[in-house]
Design a protein around this nucleic acid. Structure first.
Lengths: 230, 230
DNA sequence: GAAAATATTAACCAACTGGTTAAATTTTAG
DNA sequence: CTAAAATTTAACCAGTTGGTTAATATTTTC
């Protein structure tokens, strides 16, 4: 299926990766995990090839099975690592101290920082979740304590709305908006670059400034105009 | 790799699909396209199997090659259909009449309507775009006349900001926010349902109300408080 | 320094894969 | 009603795939 040009590029990539892996002096296991991440992110769990992973790691294919029982085991490990990195601090943010706006700021800051470093995470996670939803609803997501923290955050939002601190709207819509504006620009980069008529550098510059932009936007949408100027 | 339970479910699905296809009296070609969409959406172009597509379509595998030269040809067709359905009217919205808010309203309305009917579209398109970006930057995206319409819309946004009609912010951030809030809730459904503590019906009910919610949020973020009450 | 443990590899396997082909069947056209 | 065209299928193919194994090499331990 691969053209000759693509094959050359692939081989060059494999060689460069092998050289860079050698230079970094990683163990074989670490090289495998790095290569597996790239392969699973790019092609999904069913499209990724064990030989492809071995080639990118610069090792013999049998070593994959020596360290990780099988392809599914390797995938589980890679996915669980990604998932627990992506999900993580939301719960402590929800149940910690601070106003609604402060919590939103903390979430946006934390997540933008993570996604700038690992822009492939959300698409990878969400794509595998749609591919095999039952894997998550019977496993890793059930281990995720979603209900309590968000429900208390929900209450807090409702109270601040009732107190007139922030504008009245469906709290679930609010959170949906916050997550959308934080995460989607990383998922939608190829399309957004085209729409916004920017190149990759310009786009990434936009992303590094997103924190202030998102927070200002949310504040302007939520905060009521003050009747008493300080 | 499939467990027996999954195999039974798959076979039942194939049978039900075959029965429903028969009931709908579609041509073989249409059955193939429907099955191919489902397979490519779920597993990606490299993970989807020709035999899987044939099984779901209820036809012999050789027929795939009779109608569509090969797997890549079938995928191209499916992807291009999806892409031209997802991208489409943005350009006429950008270059048409109306204020910035009116254009935003038109975009949100049009796209929500499309995505409620076809919620798998954005994840599929963006996933394939990240998997093989060169396919798009040398092909279909170059055919997409992105530059002129958005640049004129950019100018319009800037003018309305300068005129004090809407609040000052980076127009690219504005559009990024609009697209994010419209598209991400469809991509992020499995995760958002968990965070928001809603079931599928409740989540879809949220989605059907998103138009007003998004537009109100944007208006509150953008529109300046009036100094003269009518 | 030798034994034990760990790592690594080439070669191999059965099953799966995308694609092909000739024959049979069905549909269409005249 | 028959020939032509279109559709459909079973059987097949070479290459790819995930996984295994025995042998070899390297590292670690005592």
């Amino acid at each position: 299926m691969l053209s000759n040009e693509k094959r050359i590029i692939l081989l060059l990539t494999i060689w460069l990766n092998a050289m860079s892996n050698k230079e970094l002096d990683l163990s074989s296991k670490e090289k495998i995990l790095n290569a597996a991440r790239r392969a699973f992110i790019r092609n999904g769990s069913s499209g990724a090839r064990m030989q492809e992973i071995a080639d990118e790691a610069g090792i013999n294919k049998a070593l994959l099975h020596y360290y990780f029982k099988n392809k599914e085991g390797l995938f589980e490990l890679v996915f669980n690592d990604a998932f627990s990195e992506f999900i993580p601090k939301i719960h402590s943010i929800f149940s910690g101290d601070g106003s609604v706006m402060e919590k939103i700021e903390r979430y946006v800051e934390t997540h933008l920082e993570l996604l700038i470093r690992k822009p492939d995470l959300p698409l990878f996670i969400l794509n595998e979740m749609q591919r095999e939803p039952e894997r998550f609803f019977s496993g890793i997501l059930n281990k995720m304590p979603g209900a309590p923290p968000f429900e208390s955050f929900l209450k807090q939002i409702e109270e601040e709305m009732k107190d007139g601190k922030i504008r009245n709207m469906n709290p679930r819509d609010l959170w949906m908006n916050v997550m959308s504006m934080t995460v989607f620009p990383f998922i939608g980069e190829p399309m957004l670059k085209k729409f916004l008529v920017v190149n990759t550098e310009e786009y990434h510059s936009l992303l590094t400034k997103r924190k202030d932009s998102i927070l200002t936007f949310i504040q302007q949408a939520l905060l009521l105009p003050k009747t008493n100027n300080p």
